[in-house]
Amino acid sequence: MGFYFIDPQTYEKYKDDILDLSHSVQINFQEQLPTDKRQPGLSDKQIAKKLGLEERAVREIRCVAERDKYPLDEFEEAIRFKENACRNYSVKGMSAVMQKFVEKSKE
């Protein structure tokens, strides 16, 4: 076919390792954390070097794996989550989660 994509076998072989090494789930990613605590994840280039792959292949596998991680059901669940959270806030305001702490900070 006329464009670059990864063959499924290569994808299955590397997708979990690449997701684990990447920024996909960010644990202590933020720059302001102390250097000894910060775990920024690896760039595609760094992952490629570690796994002996081409950078482009890593990038393609990561992009597909990030999309593949959650099924379509999760997108439907997202609608339910947002409907509930938004409606809850519109009814209860900050009391939905923390009104008493907001009021205490005003005292």
Binding site: V25, Q26, Q30, E74, A78, I79
Partner: peptide, 23 residues
């Protein structure tokens, strides 16, 4: 202060880009 933080960007994408390219 923030001492630890976890963020699942793939799941966040299902919500933030619910009706968009990923969806």
């Amino acid at each position: 202060h923030i001492s630890d933080r976890q963020y699942d960007s793939a799941r966040c994408s299902t919500r933030v880009q619910n009706y968009w390219v990923p969806g």
